[in-house]
Design a protein around this nucleic acid. Structure first.
Lengths: 252, 252
DNA sequence: CGCTACGTTGATCGCACTCAAGTATAGTGG
DNA sequence: CCACTATACTTGAGTGCGATCAACGTAGCG
């Protein structure tokens, strides 16, 4: 089945089967913080989860809503967004299968500070926040894994603060491309394709700039032979030089 | 003893006694995540800690060093900084007594991503990272409190990312002043003094701008009657208008 | 009293935003 | 298969916010 596609990005369609009850167990086993549990324990945990699927662009929850659930990505990708009063959205993170989001700290009466939106077609598992809290009490090793991952996310977010405070748009875009390639890179013929639909808007929202500026930088990078790009996709062809830019700005 | 001072900020000198062994126990009791422990348990935990004091400007640890310890602020204030290759520093957080920093997630072989620096004279308690990890395993309720606080910090840091991505320098400075006033505000005669040494450099490093821009904004705010300010101190005189500038929904 | 660090203010420059018009691509239905 | 449409993307011209460079004022401290 080698149909001629323009985009090299695999848009995995989430069939109903992917989101079925039967496969939930195998998905939960892959979740980092349940990895420490035995098969029997996961079986018990599994009963607490419900599954839902969303189409690209659909909101899983909105910022401001009562934070009542913890979610786990089973398949597809989920965007975490913060909104500004001015109307601009900031893309905080793109979550992969196995990643959790929503209400994961045992705080009562909180609201979601961000909006979770399906980036591709997704299947998510959800558990009541209180039930998750009980679970953390029951399995301390799980709580430590959750702490571990949350601490890592904090450090990564602090690094983004540093970049926004001190780096140029070009540096930030180079950095985000390298980070995405690290996470989703698909190597073939010396080039690294970022395996996700990635528009100029996405890129702009991730780096605190405008679509136009993101477009200009991306075009420039391509002209310089650092990347190859098309509609909704980017592949890195010269990682070393891109790393140099991300670290030390060439100035223009 | 009302001596005439130019700065209204109380520069609390940390006497040797403040950092003595005898007072450690009472300090640990005030640490949020040990609050759940009994007096006996705290006594045991206490033996694992050592105390150190630092003068303003001294580094407690440098970024890049092996992350071997968890620290708790006992007295004074600690700055968390990230450095850029360009030489600019970003001020991520100003920690208060009871706040923890350093290596608090049970990751092995990590390095500090930031530098911890004494902002005022400080006394800190430290514990070996592995010993702290053991402690978290021993007292799951403590681990949940740590997770709770870490998750809150993550949300706060994400909010800073949003601000840096979408807000103007003026908005960001207004927001940081309100946040500091919330945390350290000392009310007297309708005005709220931020109880910490706060220079234009600090303000600039917190909001991703330059000293000159920070100075211009602060001068402007004073001219408009929103704040009163002097060398190393700022007091808020018109919170409502400042909130409007910051873009916070007052809800009324 | 100087010295030093902090702070202010002015002039100028440039990066990135804004506004605007246009091109290319994927998907859709005839 | 091709026209048609919607969406993604590009590119240009002009502007402005905030950085940079520079000089000076001011508070605190020994």
């Amino acid at each position: 089945m080698t149909t001629r596609r323009k985009t090299p990005v695999q848009v995995e369609t989430v069939e109903p089967a992917t989101c079925s009850v039967g496969l939930r167990l195998s998905i939960l086993q892959k979740v980092p913080f349940f990895h420490v549990l035995t098969a029997d324990e996961i079986g018990i945990v599994n009963e607490q989860f419900r599954e839902f699927s969303f189409q690209p662009g659909e909101a899983i929850y909105f910022s401001g809503e009562q934070a009542a659930k913890l979610y786990v990505v089973a398949a597809g990708q989920v965007k975490l967004l913060r909104h500004s009063l001015s109307g601009q959205d900031v893309l905080l993170d793109v979550l992969q299968p196995g990643d959790y989001f929503g209400s994961f700290s045992p705080l009562a009466d909180e609201r979601y500070p961000d909006t979770a939106q399906a980036h591709t077609a997704v299947c998510v598992l959800s558990i009541n926040a209180k039930a998750f809290h009980t679970l953390l009490n029951q399995y301390p090793s799980v709580a430590l894994r959750v702490l571990d991952i949350t601490a890592r996310r904090l450090r990564e977010t602090q690094e983004i603060v540093r970049q926004l405070s001190t780096d140029s748009v070009g540096q930030r875009i180079a950095a985000v491309l390298l980070k995405l390639a690290e996470k989703l890179g698909e190597v073939s013929n010396e080039i690294v394709l970022i395996q996700m639909p990635l528009s100029r808007v996405d890129l702009a929202q991730m780096t605190g700039t405008t679509t136009e500026s993101a477009s200009r930088i991306v075009s420039q990078f391509q002209k310089e032979g650092l990347i190859r790009t098309g509609r909704q996709w980017i592949a890195i062809t010269d990682r070393t030089r891109l790393e140099k830019i991300a670290g030390i700005d060439t100035g223009g």
